[in-house]
């Protein structure tokens, strides 16, 4: 294994993206909307296809706009169906993204008459390719840094509103905070963050980093503030650890097992998600094992 400058940039870009996803992700999870990231990753397809059909080019900008619109529309539409149709949250999200994805597939098939459009190539970037640049700081680092900064500022500004509407709708409403609007703002922020990162880095890192670092922090933190900071830490750690696994441990293991020395590094984004999961499950296991037997029975109210 040789650590190059490229590896440093991969870790930095991954960590910045992971952290910018983790911030809104904590509140997403508290609002029981954890599956939004995955839903959006499917639902952007028709947006891309329509943008392509309208603009007739494979430029990034119109496609990004289309994807953004589709992502935001998914969040709004599933919320609306949930409210006016009294459909369970997960189900309404599922209905919307499945239908969107199906529309996207149809449109791509229509577009395929004119030119070969592979949406996964057009929009879904890869971390390894994003950082390749002749000199200086890669563009992806700047964009993810800006996203992180914007998200941090927004979360800091609306911390009280986000926290209240996540925990106590009625209290929030009586304190003059419209919980529906706060939630809508949160989902829109998440859509924008996700789509930006899909374009540069790919979807799997986003889907994982929205939820897993926050969930890991929720295993032992007691306040929303500490969960936010801990999830930032876990996100950064998972990126570094994941990239290490991707370039050293996994290729070495696979080469040994398959008796094929040609296997190089595997997908860093995939291993970053895996690494975040490893941290989550080891802390969960640690909690389970460290708990003395029958602890739940002996919790006696001392008052």
């Amino acid at each position: 294994m040789i650590w190059t400058e490229l590896d440093t940039w991969i870790v930095i870009a991954g960590a910045l993206t992971a952290m910018s996803c983790a911030l809104p992700g904590v509140f997403l999870q508290l609002n029981k909307q954890s599956m939004l990231g995955d839903a959006i990753s499917h639902a952007v397809l028709p947006g891309i296809a329509i943008a392509f059909l309208l603009s007739g080019s494979k430029d990034t900008l119109p496609m990004l706009a289309g994807a953004l619109a589709a992502g935001v529309l998914t969040a709004i539409l599933s919320g609306t169906i949930q409210r006016i149709g009294q459909v369970e949250q997960g189900a309404s999200l599922g209905v919307v993204f499945c239908v969107f994805f199906a529309v996207g597939i149809l449109l791509v098939r229509v577009a395929a008459d004119h030119v070969d459009l592979d949406p996964s190539c057009v929009l879904f970037g890869s971390l390894e390719l994003a950082v390749i640049q002749s000199s200086g700081i890669p563009k992806v680092v700047w964009t993810s840094l800006i996203t992180l900064a914007v998200n941090s500022v927004l979360v800091a500004l609306f911390f009280k509103e986000l926290r209240l509407s996540a925990f106590d709708n009625r209290y929030a409403a009586s304190a003059g905070i419209p919980p529906e609007s706060v939630r809508l703002g949160l989902t829109i922020l998440t859509s924008i963050t996700s789509v930006m990162a899909f374009e540069s880095i790919g979807s799997i890192l986003v889907i994982a980093m929205l939820i897993v670092p926050g969930a890991t922090a929720l295993l032992f933190c007691r306040s929303v503030g500490s969960v936010l900071f801990a999830s930032l830490g876990f996100a950064a750690l998972a990126s570094a650890g994941g990239h290490l696994l991707a370039i050293s441990t996994i290729p070495a293991m696979l080469s040994y097992l398959l008796d094929n020395p040609d296997i190089g590094s595997v997908s860093s984004a995939g291993m970053m998600a895996t690494c975040a999961g490893l941290m989550f499950f080891s802390i969960l296991l640690g909690k389970i094992l460290s708990k003395p037997r029958g602890a739940s029975v002996t919790q006696v109210d001392t008052q």
Partner: peptide, 28 residues
């Protein structure tokens, strides 16, 4: 069973972690 994590978050965790690992293996 062992945490207060909500069901939807658990679904998202399992989805992303397993799929991430799958993506890594596929790239190999």
């Amino acid at each position: 069973r062992f945490s207060t994590i909500k069901d939807d978050a658990a679904l998202a965790i399992v989805l992303s972690v397993f799929f991430g690992f799958g993506v890594a293996l596929l790239s190999a």
